[in-house]
Each structure stands twice: as structure tokens, then as C-alpha cells.
Design a protein around this nucleic acid. Structure first.
Length: 267
DNA sequence: TTTGTCAATCAGCCCT
DNA sequence: AGGGCTGATTGACAAA
């Protein structure tokens, strides 16, 4: 079982040279990609095995302009008739204890007015209804950025201002990115731990080999542990191609064998 | 210059 | 009360 089997992250660990392609930071960059490097450099890289842009993964299409069902419509339009969210109307949210069905009617409406009724500048917070959030989420799955028409349509659909839709998408993108960064960070920590362990193990093995070299003649120096068989090509590591010549020659290039590498590729 | 996006931050609301 | 979530604002930056 490989590491990725455990983590199941879809990330790929690679060792080699990295070339720089200046990544544009605008648009929603494929999440998990790091800052650009500075040309060709030896690198140990971790990257996502696929292009994990969240926005492209949706399989379910939602017609943003399709009419809402009765319940949704009712929610939204009752909101519309509710007091302005930017007014001092009480931010009532009926909490039916024990009941899932929070009365959305009572939720604060997103109102198309910019000013408080009383003219005060206090920022009253809009809370989107479940229906609004759901529709925004579905829309985000389809495209994480909106063109002006899409924004307009969606705003009309949700009875919000286009600016509010825009802000929602902005925040959604930012927070998705943040979340992904946290996930990547956790994964890298695990990789680091695993590599540290591997490094420690190899050091130990090296020490053992050195000790053997001192105390034993050459033909007895190969510990059983080094005669591991590659499960992919079924060659025995540490033995020369032509055993008749020198059956105890240590392979020139050690067969690095770890759960991060593909044995076939290494062979 | 305009427009769109982003990062950083603020601030209201809700939950524990 | 404090923390988390989330809507909103601001300023910087890039592309057209």
C-alpha cells in the first residue's frame, strides 16, 4: 500500500528538475500550485496529480436562470418583501429549537437598497437563505468566476444585487483556496515525516553496512536485506547482471526503493 | 482609464 | 465571552 493510498490526496511526489513557467496569479489558479520557481533547479516536488480546480469538477448542471421551485421562490420573494437587511429591522431568525426547518422567512433579506432606512451607517449583515446559498454553490461548481451577464442573471435569480453575488464569489474563491492550502500543508507535513523516517532508516542501514565491511570479508558483506527483489521487474537488487563474473558485486547504482517511487520506472 | 480579481481586513451574527 | 463563519470594504495590480 503506497502512501497515496493512505492519504488518498491525488498528490504526486516527484524528484527532478523543475522548469519555470511564470504562473499567472490572476484567474483562479489551480489550487495547490506554489509560487513560480527560478528556472531549472533540482527539486523535490509535490504536486496535484490532476488539475484540481474546484470549479471544473461539477458534474451536475444547474440552470442559473431556471425558475426556482415554489419553496425557493417563496423564500426569496418573501425576503424581498421583508424589511431591508440594511435597515434596523430586527435580525430575527426564528430558531425552532429541535427543528431543522429554520424559518427562512424570518431571515434577513438581501435588499437592493444601499442605505439604511434611518440613514445610519451601521453595517447590518446579510445572511443568505439556504436556497440562495445552494444556488450560489451550484453556480460556483460550474464556474468559479462569473461574466457580467452571468452575474446579472444570478443576481436577478437570487434577488440580490450583482455586487453581492460578486462578493460572494470572491469570498468563496478566497476561502476555497485557503482551505486547499491547509490541506496541502497537512499533506506536506505527512510527507516530510515519512521522508524523515525513510532517511533515518537509510542512515541506519548505511551504518550497518559500514560495520559489516569492517568486520567481514567481501563475499559475506551483503546482508540479506539488500537482496530485495523488485516486485515489478523481479530483479534482485544488489546483484550484478552477470553473476558468473562476480556473483557478489554490489550494484553500481543502488536501487532506491520507496513507496514514493514507481518500481517499474526505477527499473 | 476602466474593469475585474485578489489579498487583507473589518465587522456582524451565531454557536458553544 | 470567544471563536468561527461569512458578508462587505479597501487598495493594489494586471489586462484590455
Amino acid at each position: 500500500m503506497g502512501f497515496d493510498d493512505i492519504c488518498n490526496t491525488g498528490l504526486v511526489l516527484g524528484l527532478g528538475f523543475s522548469s519555470t513557467t511564470d504562473q499567472k496569479s490572476s484567474k483562479i489558479a489551480p489550487l495547490g500550485k506554489g509560487p513560480p520557481s527560478l528556472g531549472f533547479e533540482p527539486s523535490l516536488t509535490l504536486s496535484l496529480s490532476g488539475d484540481h480546480t474546484y470549479d471544473q469538477q461539477a458534474t451536475k448542471k444547474v440552470n442559473v436562470t431556471k425558475p426556482l421551485n415554489d419553496h425557493q421562490s417563496a423564500d426569496l420573494y418573501r425576503q424581498d418583501s421583508a424589511a431591508s437587511s440594511y435597515s434596523n429591522a430586527s435580525v430575527k431568525r426564528e430558531r425552532d429549537v429541535g427543528s431543522e426547518e429554520t424559518t427562512e422567512v424570518e431571515r434577513v433579506s438581501s435588499r437592493v437598497s444601499d442605505e439604511d432606512d434611518d440613514g445610519s451607517n451601521s453595517r447590518k449583515k446579510l445572511r443568505l437563505t439556504k436556497a440562495q446559498s445552494a444556488l450560489l454553490e451550484e453556480s460556483f461548481k460550474i464556474h468559479s468566476t462569473l461574466n457580467p451577464k452571468q452575474k446579472q442573471d444570478l443576481a436577478r435569480e437570487l434577488n440580490l444585487r450583482p455586487r453581492q453575488v460578486e462578493v460572494w464569489f470572491q469570498n468563496r474563491r478566497a476561502r476555497t483556496k485557503l482551505k486547499q492550502t491547509e490541506v496541502d500543508c497537512e499533506f506536506l507535513k505527512k510527507c516530510c515525516e515519512t521522508l524523515t523516517d525513510e532517511n533515518r532508516r537509510l542512515h541506519k542501514e548505511l551504518q550497518e553496512l559500514k560495520a559489516l565491511k569492517i568486520t567481514q570479508p567481501l563475499y559475506m558483506q551483503l546482508p540479506a536485506a539488500t537482496l530485495t527483489m523488485c516486485p515489478s521487474c523481479e530483479r534482485i537488487g544488489g546483484v550484478a547482471e552477470n553473476p558468473s563474473k562476480n556473483p557478489f558485486t554490489i550494484a553500481q547504482k543502488p536501487h532506491f526503493y520507496s513507496q514514493f517511487t514507481n518500481p517499474s520506472a526505477a527499473c
